[in-house]
């Protein structure tokens, strides 16, 4: 029997002020699969990603990650669970400009005391940076990096905790075609190497053939089961 990395049941969420409502009766993503979530702007792709990651809490229903209900956790438990199980890559990179590359990579360890920070973490950060091609820029600031390098740095930060799930919210949205390809392959390879589940939100349909499954929120994604 296939075990599910992510399982959603009867999920509802709304932004009352915006009149927005998201409803996912059932959605499950098996472990190790690469899944794309697509849909037009405003259909709730990012919201769904945030619900899965436990950044948002649903108003109804349940989100399970690796068999554990994220919805039922306390705020602190949810944060600690997220930081150690889910690596998030943002569209705008969201790097801290005042930290060097190396410190940006270990940021999850700097902001959450539940993760033990030791030399091994810095060693892993250096190794990750090497593997994505920014090993020689560890002491630079994000402002001194190109767009592609910034996204590689953001990927390193998402992977530093060795998460079981890698989530990416339009990670190639700010990149040119060459960089898009490279970054896509980089994330997929890293996910494959870790046997991690990869969930990516995108509106770039030319990338979809690289995924095991595609959930189209606009069409029938709200009831979809992979």
């Amino acid at each position: 029997m296939t075990s599910h990395a992510i399982e959603i049941r009867g999920l509802t969420f709304s932004y009352e002020a915006l009149g927005f409502e998201l409803s996912i009766p059932h959605l499950s993503i098996p472990e190790g699969k690469h899944v794309a979530i697509v849909g037009p702007s405003g259909c709730g792709k990012t919201t769904l990603a945030y619900l899965i990651a436990g950044i948002h809490v649903p108003s109804g229903g349940n989100v399970e990650i690796g068999g554990r209900s994220v919805t039922d956790m306390t705020d602190e438990a949810r944060r600690n669970f997220r930081i150690s199980h889910i690596g998030f890559i943002f569209q705008e990179f969201e790097l801290l400009e005042y930290l060097r590359v190396e410190e940006n990579i270990v940021l999850p360890y700097l902001v959450n005391a539940s993760l033990g920070l030791d030399k091994a973490v810095y060693e892993r950060a250096r190794s990750l940076a090497e593997s994505v091609g920014i090993g020689d820029k560890l002491h630079r600031y994000p402002g001194e990096l190109s767009q592609g390098e910034k996204q590689r740095l953001a990927i390193c930060r998402a992977l530093i905790t060795d998460p079981r799930i890698i989530m990416a919210d339009e990670p190639t949205g700010n990149l040119d075609a060459g960089n898009t390809d490279a970054i896509m392959e980089l994330i997929r390879n890293q996910a494959r190497r870790r046997d991690a589940t990869f969930v990516m939100i995108t509106h770039e349909h030319n990338l979809l053939d690289r995924f095991d499954h595609v959930i189209d929120l606009a069409k029938d994604g709200r009831r979809d089961t992979v």
């Binding site: 945030y50 950044i55 602190e76 930081i83 150690s84 943002f90 969201e94 902001v111 959450n112």
Partner: peptide, 16 residues
């Protein structure tokens, strides 16, 4: 604000 929001999304508490 954005930086703080990023920290929160990564797993940092609002108190931190």
């Amino acid at each position: 604000k954005r930086e703080m929001e990023t920290m929160f999304r990564i797993g940092c508490s609002r108190l931190t």
